[in-house]
Design a protein around this nucleic acid. Sequence first.
DNA 1: GTGAAAGCGCTAACAC
DNA 2: GTGTTAGCGCTTTCAC
Lengths: 371, 371
Amino acid sequence: MMAKDQGENPRPRVTIQDVARAAGVSVSTVSNLLNGRDGRMRPGTSRRVRQAIVELDYQPSDVARQLRTGQGRMLGLIVPSVANPFWADLAHVFEAEALRYGYQVALCNGERDPDRERAYVEDLWTSGVRAVILGSSLPSLSHLMPAIRRGLRLIAFDRETIEGDDQSVISVSVDNRVGGFIATRYLLLLGHRRIGFITGRVETISRRQRLAGYQQAIHEAGVQFTKELIWEGHSTEGYVDIESAKLVKQGIVALLELPDPPTAIVTINDIYAIGVMAGVRERGLTVPTDVSVVGFDDIVLSSLVDPPLTTVSQPLTEMARFAIDVIRGAHEISPDTRTSLVVMPRLIVRESAGSPRPASTLAPPDTSESA
Amino acid sequence: MMAKDQGENPRPRVTIQDVARAAGVSVSTVSNLLNGRDGRMRPGTSRRVRQAIVELDYQPSDVARQLRTGQGRMLGLIVPSVANPFWADLAHVFEAEALRYGYQVALCNGERDPDRERAYVEDLWTSGVRAVILGSSLPSLSHLMPAIRRGLRLIAFDRETIEGDDQSVISVSVDNRVGGFIATRYLLLLGHRRIGFITGRVETISRRQRLAGYQQAIHEAGVQFTKELIWEGHSTEGYVDIESAKLVKQGIVALLELPDPPTAIVTINDIYAIGVMAGVRERGLTVPTDVSVVGFDDIVLSSLVDPPLTTVSQPLTEMARFAIDVIRGAHEISPDTRTSLVVMPRLIVRESAGSPRPASTLAPPDTSESA
DNA sequence: GTGAAAGCGCTAACAC
DNA sequence: GTGTTAGCGCTTTCAC
């Protein structure tokens, strides 16, 4: 079952030597031109070289170039799974930003598994990748330390730097606590008092912080915090968030069966919010009339679902741009400078959240302040 | 604004030389071990080398290796946009299959733009990528010919090879005509007679074929084909499908305003189907009671929406596996062998399609056959 | 302004 | 069984 040497006629590679010969110059002249050092080059020379390049359809080899210079153009992007629309959106935006500076993006689905993440990072390093964006807010980064010590530049996305992280780790993140806070406060202002919170089993820094923001808002509003309104998922769910969105239906159903059920729900991401909405409908209830729901992330899809989702948005483009800037070295990095970026989330008001029905709990809507 | 040479202490690269020296052998011995040629190696030697590798934390450089052998481990994947869940699912599956054989995947969002596709392909080639999967069923592949002539192995996904394609282009695709056919026939069997078809402006081979399948089913059922039931989108829509899903709402609304509106809709992908369902609801109607809808692709999301979408599934894993096999050279390729793969789609029955309400058109449901 | 030559880290003859 | 060595295609001093 030996592989045939298929398509035997690809022409042999055109090298810088060939171009030099065709143009009647030396390789260094060609190289100089290629690298923009043609300032004081005789016009004739430059022209001949350029012409030879076109005529021979010459493509410089980045492989050789990288071996020589140590500089590569490939960036790693590790996300839990691109099948999750949030990470797909990030991949989309990040790739676009990378492209602007001539970088290419190697996509890795880490599944939130430290072993896989480590394997990817080692593999990428081997392939000459020297910078990777890690989208996974696993609490520990220790599995990546060997690579970091070797010189890998790691940028953590959606995960603020915490105590114990290596000095060299830069992070880009939305302020998740604020995000949880504004989502919850919005519902509070709408008049809700029984507000549920739905999260997943997998413990990440960002999820913890979104919950903290929720609690803070509840507390500041003088509402009693109740643990029964927090649903955390089961222990057997898969790592890939998107699949666990089905499980979330159970969560909302459980919450709705409470003696005093919530009139509004905050979720830790839009996919969960979509699952929640489906669960609500399955109970014969309506969003937002019977229960309001607020998501997180503002994935592209969230404006498409029915009803369009009110959610907390992350400025992905800005975040991706910062990451690329760090990689390019356009930002000063020094031990005593705050080089991590924490951007502010924004509440996107659409139609999945409204005032509770008058018939329900206490206090009438208090809309004196607006988010 | 000069970039600081940040993190100045990464240790210098450990090379095969260092390992050889540490183990007291020559580089070729180390190389032999690395490449599995350690069959007749003295156990002691092998052990010493292995130990040196671990102790020095040696990582072979794929860059050097590729320069030498011409063999790379990076594959290109060009999709219209990962923000579109279908392509995200493909990227997920493809990356997983690639990983099994040690390949890495460079992700490119071509936006269905021939110029971008060409630029990506040239760039990938420069980076040493020698095989790319192209997910875009643009009718012509001519913009990629220069790279193909240079020796690039191109695998077209979701696009059967057509007249005029280069010999060396392999394709992997679902039988889109059959897909359109079974979707439509299913609705016909449920008793629908007025069946709409919603597609986008961008002309692709796969879309054309899905429509052809629809027409064939209509015709075989002896139902009159009506052009007014086909909605094709506007000319100003963006290239990225997902955004145009909003536009699709206009399409369904237009169809529903017809004097004799359709009782069922076939769409060319699940995102459109989701848009259609939202449009139906916006009109105060219900899916599937008032109008049935069938999607295409069976993206992960389609089982999550409400109601769960009845759709035509593409066996992505199988398709990705074939693509990787071709790249690995595990399939014989010869001019007279059919090396393209056309797999059969399958109808996934969920809840978005049902019988038309008795009150409506003619003939009662005829369920003598089942899809 | 242009060229000669060394070498990035590795593989694979070929020699012993 | 293991070592020596020639390059893969490029960049970059350093001469001229």
